[in-house]
């Protein structure tokens, strides 16, 4: 599997931080997913060899945790919190509005490959609900009336290059993600 120098270096550093190699499993899977977009059998085998475990021991982790994916997703990943605190202030309506605007159903990727919308469970920002996490950025107080505005911003993100979608900077609204 070809991984960038940067990712490989991060992986080595991560492994060195734990008393046992296998403990680096979750962080390494995140690193690979961040570069590749998803975790395929090749990635599982690569991680297994790296951490000296069997491929099935990697797969059982990949399939247990909701954040790992075995299939690619859209360019912009939209996660709408659906749990009670957010639902009480309109999260379900927000999700419907985003689905409409982005022409993409929850749990699916839009036909043009630009968006994936997901319903997720509480992301620990309940006092500012409804909250929507877009890639690594957090959007708070997204009342149903404001969902259209957010959809426009998401569309801009999909148009822009990957740089524009990358890390949120301190001081920007999204930094809490």
């Amino acid at each position: 599997m070809d991984l960038s120098e940067q990712t490989l270096e991060k992986i080595e550093k991560t492994i060195a931080k734990f008393p046992k190699k296998r403990s680096a499993m979750l962080p390494i899977l995140h690193l690979i997913q961040e570069e590749k977009g998803y975790l395929d059998p090749e990635a599982e085998e690569w991680v297994a060899a790296k951490l000296e475990v069997t491929p099935i021991q990697v797969r059982e982790v990949v399939t247990f945790y909701p954040m790992y994916r075995q299939k690619p997703i859209g360019k912009v990943h939209v996660k709408v919190c659906r749990t009670l605190s957010c639902a009480l202030v309109g999260a379900y309506k927000v999700c419907e509005k985003l689905e409409e605007e982005l022409k993409c159903k929850r749990g699916e990727t839009s036909a043009d490959g630009k968006y994936t919308i997901e319903f997720v469970e509480c992301i620990a920002d309940c006092g500012k609900g409804p909250v929507v996490q877009v890639d690594d950025k957090m959007y708070e107080l997204i009342k149903p009336e404001k969902a259209g505005e957010l959809a426009e911003e998401i569309k801009r993100m999909a148009e822009a290059g990957p740089e524009a979608v990358a890390t949120a900077q301190p001081g920007t609204p999204g930094f809490k993600g």
Partner: peptide
């Protein structure tokens, strides 16, 4: 892990 629904207190401390 702060994952109990309705809980958002550790977030402020961490961030």
């Amino acid at each position: 892990d702060e994952s109990e629904p309705g809980t958002f207190k550790d977030r402020q401390l961490i961030y």
